[in-house]
Amino acid sequence: MMNAFTGNMFEIFKREFRAYFASPVAYVFLVFYLMLIGFLTFFVSRFYEANQADLKYFFFWFPWVNLLLVPAATMRLWTEERRTGTLELLMTLPVTLPQALVGKFLAAWLFMMIGVLLTLPVVFTTIYLGSPDAGAVIGGYAGAILLSGAYVAVGTLTSAMTRNQVISFVIAFVICLFLALAGWPPVMEIVNKWAPGWLVNGIASLSVMPHFESLQRGVIDVRDVIYYVSVMALALFGAHLVLENRKSS
């Protein structure tokens, strides 16, 4: 038996998830996602020419493809509620804001997970061609799912901040780009010139990349999981604050 919190959260989740598939946009989105991952893996990284049945190049592209597509999948979440006025309806139903936030977040995350898991044929192909390390494959997918969750939470936050989908997309893109590039040596060199050491390390530790790479090695480290969960929790908490304040101003 579900308690009242999860019960209402589940209703919101269901509605939001179905809303993705109410129009052909979801299918176009998923096809585009798969084509992009496939193109980058097979043509840009030259998967076949490497002559190794290895998924390193395949997983390499996830943060970048998600960077482009997660903000597109989340930009609707709260902006549309506000634009069409259904926010007023939703917030006067006996639903708490955390229920609505988590329900919507999970719906968008599950939608992204479908995209991630639809890439499994690439794995089957690789298994057919050689024998990739099972741990690395599972770790890589766990990393890709957690990473998309962190981006989805950021997208949820930015969609709560505005009633314009394009603005939500752009801000989410910039924040996720920062999370992807923080800690990357060329970027850190710029920061190094003026920032004190602790700040440089602080910025570098925000990056999603080391956590994504360490999961790809097939070791599911609790610290990596904690990192992703913290990003999600922090972004959702931010979205909660934004929505509370929007209401009262």
């Binding site: 009242a4 019960g7 209402n8 209703e11 919101i12 269901k14 509605r15 179905r18 809303a19 109410a22 129009s23 069409t84 006025g85 259904t86 007023e88 309806l89 006067t92 139903l93 006996p94 639903v95």
Partner: peptide, 27 residues
């Protein structure tokens, strides 16, 4: 029971689907 100004309803839902959602949230 609240009918807001301009009667907002989720546009991409069917009438029955929308009412079913509200009934679910109402417990």
């Amino acid at each position: 029971g609240y009918l807001p100004e301009n009667a907002p309803v989720y546009p991409e839902m069917t009438v029955a689907g929308f009412l079913d959602f509200v009934a679910g949230v109402r417990g």
